[in-house]
Structure formats: structure tokens, C-alpha cells
């Protein structure tokens, strides 16, 4: 069976088992990958269904990761007006975060079904103030460390996790480094202090540099049969 057929089967299973019981779950298919967006409150029953129902059979939780959407689509160089106004000399260095408080964070689960040989991405959006979601460690034990990692790096809380400690950052680290409002150079630097005879932490002395500015371009260059010039003419003709 080809990947397309396997995804068709998965879509059918969604229609059979999800549509009625969980009408708020939305699935979409892009680049031969299936994404299922689940409301936060329904995560556990949906995940349980995905694992135990043999039509889904997602026995493996391959990956869990956090995402911070706070700077999504932000461009350090305005490429939209540039043809008319010209580029400015430097990139914008300020940390800009604009987000909808309702859906700043997301937790993304990558599931794998060995029996059906198909992957599924499950996404849960969380709010900015109190990002908390139920832990799936009871369903897949492998989620344990992945959830610890998402907690460490993004500050996402997992309700019911047996051991929610930091995992990757240093002992006594302050902050959640992968959030978009956490600077790349960090907050503190450390050095050995001869007088005190120990390592001391101090605020960072280096400045963050942007070597290549971040640019979002909508030039449609990869869309097939798309001709921006013609589209513009069409728009003008339409009025």
C-alpha cells in the first residue's frame, strides 16, 4: 500500500471514530502528512483512542515538542514595501513578540503506528498565561522525558506528569530558553572568580548580533502555475 492509500485509510478512520465523539478535532493533510488539532480538554480521551483503537493503532509516541508562536511571521527586514521604498540599512534587532494570548504555545506530538505504517501529528494549542495540558505519560511511557524537555525549554506544564523536573538546562537555571522572548545570548554568563574561589554568574556582557536578517518573502516562487505579474494585472482589471 502506498503512503497516500494509508493516509486515506487514516482519514476514513477519523471520520468513523472522531467526527461524532469529538467534533472539535480538526484534521488536515499537507505534504503527505496528517495533522490533527485537538482542543486541550479532549487530549487524553483522543490520545487513548488513537493508541488503543486498532483502526488507529498508534503504539509509539516518537516525539513530543513545544512550540512558541510568539514571533510567527515576524520579519526583521520589510520585504513587502521594499520595491517602492528601498531596503533600510540595518536589521531590526529588537525582540518582537506579538501573539494571540489564546494560542501562544503549542505542544506537538508525533505518533507512529507500526501496524499501519503511518504517522500522525497531533497538535494542542495552549494559552500564554497558564500553558498547561494533560500528560500522556500514562499512555506512552516514552513521553516522560519529552514532556520534561518541553517543560524545561518552554515552561509548558504537564498535568499528571510523575516527575516534572528540568532536564537539559543547568541545575538552578532561571527561565525557559526556547521561548521567543528569551534572547539567544542568554541572560547570564559565568566565570571563575579567583577571590571567591568559585564560579560566579553575572549578567551577559555581549550584545546579540544578527548576521543575516530574517526575511519573510511571499514571492510564490514554489507554487506551480503561479504568476504574480499576471495575478496583479488580473487584480487591477477586477478593479
Amino acid at each position: 500500500m502506498s503512503l497516500e492509500e494509508r493516509l486515506d485509510d487514516l482519514e476514513e478512520a477519523f471520520e468513523d471514530y472522531l467526527e461524532e465523539d469529538f467534533p472539535d478535532c480538526k484534521w488536515s493533510r499537507a505534504l503527505n502528512e496528517m495533522t490533527l488539532v485537538v482542543p486541550r480538554g479532549q487530549l487524553l480521551p483522543v490520545m487513548q483512542l488513537l493508541r488503543s483503537n486498532s483502526n488507529f493503532g498508534f503504539e509509539q509516541c516518537i516525539d513530543v515538542c513545544g512550540v512558541d508562536y510568539a514571533a510567527y511571521g515576524h520579519s526583521e527586514w520589510n520585504a513587502e514595501d521594499a520595491p517602492n521604498t528601498g531596503f533600510s540599512r540595518g536589521a531590526e534587532r529588537e525582540l518582537v513578540t506579538e501573539f494571540e494570548a489564546e494560542s501562544r504555545f503549542a505542544v506537538v506530538y508525533h505518533l507512529l503506528s507500526l501496524a499501519h505504517n503511518v504517522r500522525l501529528r497531533v497538535k494542542v494549542f495552549l494559552d500564554a498565561d497558564y500553558p498547561m495540558v494533560d500528560s500522556v505519560t500514562g499512555i506512552w511511557n516514552s513521553a516522560n522525558w519529552f514532556e520534561r524537555e518541553a517543560f524545561d525549554l518552554f515552561g509548558i506544564l504537564f498535568n499528571g506528569h510523575p516527575d516534572l523536573r528540568r532536564i537539559l538546562t543547568d541545575y538552578g537555571f532561571i527561565g525557559h530558553p526556547f521561548r521567543k522572548d528569551f534572547p539567544l545570548v542568554g541572560q547570564v554568563e559565568m566565570r571563575y572568580d579567583e577571590d571567591k574561589g568559585r564560579v560566579v554568574y553575572e549578567p551577559v556582557s555581549i550584545e546579540q548580533r544578527t548576521l543575516v536578517p530574517r526575511v519573510v518573502r511571499n514571492d510564490y516562487r514554489y507554487e506551480e502555475g503561479c504568476d504574480p505579474v499576471k495575478e496583479e494585472e488580473q487584480e487591477q482589471a477586477d478593479g
Binding site: 511571521g73 530574517r214 518573502r217
Partner: peptide, 12 residues
């Protein structure tokens, strides 16, 4: 997000 840099990269 359409930029010249990845918005988020997760390495499994």
C-alpha cells in the same frame, strides 16, 4: 513561516 530561517526546528 516563509522566512529564510526555520521558525522552529525540533530534532528527534
Amino acid at each position: 513561516d516563509g522566512a529564510n530561517k526555520p521558525y522552529r526546528l525540533k530534532i528527534r
